[in-house]
Every structure is written in structure tokens, then in C-alpha cells.
Nucleic acid binder design. Structure first.
Lengths: 152, 152
DNA sequence: TAGCATGTAACTAATCTTGTTACGGAATAG
DNA sequence: CTATTCCGTAACAAGATTAGTTACATGCTA
């Protein structure tokens, strides 16, 4: 079962956009994510619709942040991506009328519903600015001579 | 992203096996799950290795419960299935040396780790007998004349 | 108006899971 | 001891989903 890494990727992009503060073309972003411009446009479209980024055409165009990172939570981005399915494990619906299946699914549904509520509240409580601050910490530490080799 | 419904299906099967208490062939189970015998054997193999069911070859063979449902938790079955990935959302690893990616992934990993711990403890606290009891409730209720149409 | 950048549809490729076929081995009935 | 039944497993085919790609239209700016 393959992972959906769009959330991780979008957070990555938004922080880079903020720190480099300027506009970035889909081409540039695609290089950053090891993918291609069309995929970037597809993915960023949701963020634009929800007002977190803006896109401009023509010379000097590209993508820019529409709001400060303090005002964007992980949940906001999750939703902007269409609230993709969180779990890779799901319920069987082979015999919807079977009472055994109903009991099994009710039990599993309870557990997954609670776990998702937990995750959602966690996502709501973290802003991208929080993550960017953590990045600043790492960066200042690795800026030292004895720091890690790669700080791109 | 397609769901892995093996957990739900295996719980379903185990309860049926217990309530009908006798052995069931892969063929029978396959019919119950709208699938085919080879898939059943593949999936049940893990449960057998962990000692929850036994399989016997030849005439009158098939699958039987090796332990009472009281002693089998949802977590046991989850593990017997190889502890499949719980989440459909994952971390991007396009640039492992990029400190921004590291910060993003650290934040996401924290959230997912906690959510998974929650789910695991939930799974550990529910036995299949608990679910079977819930089934008994539903069954006794629907046994009434005014109950649901299908009580297979 | 030339060139750059996004928007989007349509198609291709890669991947993953499930379903299927085929055959081997073990147990049992008769 | 032989035919039948059933599991075990490998190997292959089919189906579904996602990411990647191509192509072309639109819009903006110099």
C-alpha cells in the first residue's frame, strides 16, 4: 500500500517559500520535490482554492504565500488536499446484512474514528510556523563547523 | 488508496467459526468473504503461525479455532497479519539531508506515532469475544418479528 | 506580440493487491 | 492401496490506483 506524501511535501514547499520569500515557479518546486511541474500544479491547486497560496501567470509569475505560516495549521493543509483517507486499514463490506460483519465493523469503526479525531486535533494544534521554528533551530545548530555535512 | 480489509475479514471469520463451532474449509470461508480459497489460505497462514487457528488436510479437514475468542485481541490478529501499515499518509523522503524536510517529517512522525500508539492500545483492549457478545445482542434483537429482514 | 508561466485534459507508465491456475503433499474413507 | 478431499505454495494474470508525461489553451508582462 503506497503512501500519500502530499501533506509532507506541501509543508516542505511552504516553508521553503517563506524562508526564501519570493515567488517560485512550478518548475522550481518540482525540482525540489523530485517530481514534475504538472503534479505540482495539481497538488497546489487545492491550497490555492483554500487561500493559502496564490499563483500568477506570465513573466515573473509562479507561486507565492497568501498568508503567514502562523495562520496555517497542518489540518488546514490536510483539508486543502481534500482530506485524503488517513488509514490504510478499512472495513470489509462483503455482506452488509451480516450481523457479524456489522458488529466487527462497529468495533473497528469506533477505534478508527477516535484515532482520527486524535490526529485531527493534533494537526489543528500545530502551525507551519511551529515547524519552521524547529527548522531554524536545526539550521543554527548545523551552521557550526562541526555540524552535519548537508544543510541545503 | 485502497483499503486493507484483512483485519475486518479475519475477525468476521473467527466469530463465524466460533459460533458454528466446527471446522470450515477454505472454500466455505472464501464464499463467506466473496473471495477465493487461495486468498483465504494466504491470509489465514499468519493466524496459524501465531497459534490462533489450526489447519488440517484431507477428508474432513479445514480450519478450526485453536484458542477461545476471549484470549484473542484485535491487536493479536493485526500482528498475525504482519502488522500492516496503519496509515495511508506518509512522509516524503525526497531529500533526506534537507533540514526543512527533516523538521516537517519529525512533526508528522510525532503525530502519527502517537495516533498509532492510541490505536494499538485500543486494539489490545478489545477481544474478539467482546465483538461476538455485541453480535449476540444484535442477533437476539433482530430475532424478534419486527427485526431487520436479513439475519444470516 | 513574443515569451513565459499556469490550467487542465488525456494518455502512459509504474506499482500494488487480489484473483487465478497449477501442482505437490498429507490425511482419510472405503 | 487407491481415490478423494483439502491445505501449501509458487507463479502468473487481472484490476485498480497513483504518479508521471504530453499536449495545448489561457493569461500576463515586458
Amino acid at each position: 500500500m503506497r503512501h500519500d506524501s502530499r501533506l509532507s511535501r506541501m509543508l516542505h514547499v511552504l516553508i521553503h517559500m517563506d524562508r526564501h520569500n519570493g515567488s517560485a515557479t512550478s518548475e522550481k518546486i518540482a525540482q525540489m520535490l523530485n517530481t514534475n511541474p504538472v503534479v505540482v500544479r495539481r497538488t497546489m491547486a487545492g491550497l490555492r482554492e483554500d487561500g493559502y497560496v496564490r499563483s500568477e501567470k506570465g513573466h515573473g509569475g509562479g507561486w507565492t504565500l497568501a498568508r503567514p505560516l502562523e495562520e496555517i495549521s497542518l489540518l488546514n493543509i490536510h483539508r486543502a488536499l481534500g482530506s485524503p483517507e488517513v488509514f490504510a486499514i478499512g472495513l470489509a463490506i462483503d455482506h452488509p446484512d451480516c450481523l457479524v460483519e456489522q458488529s466487527v465493523n462497529a468495533a473497528l469503526r469506533d477505534a478508527f474514528t477516535e484515532a482520527e479525531a486524535f490526529l485531527v486535533s493534533r494537526f489543528a494544534s500545530v502551525t507551519i510556523a511551529d515547524i519552521a521554528r524547529d527548522f531554524d533551530d536545526r539550521y543554527s545548530r548545523c551552521d557550526q563547523p562541526q555540524g552535519p555535512a548537508a544543510c541545503n
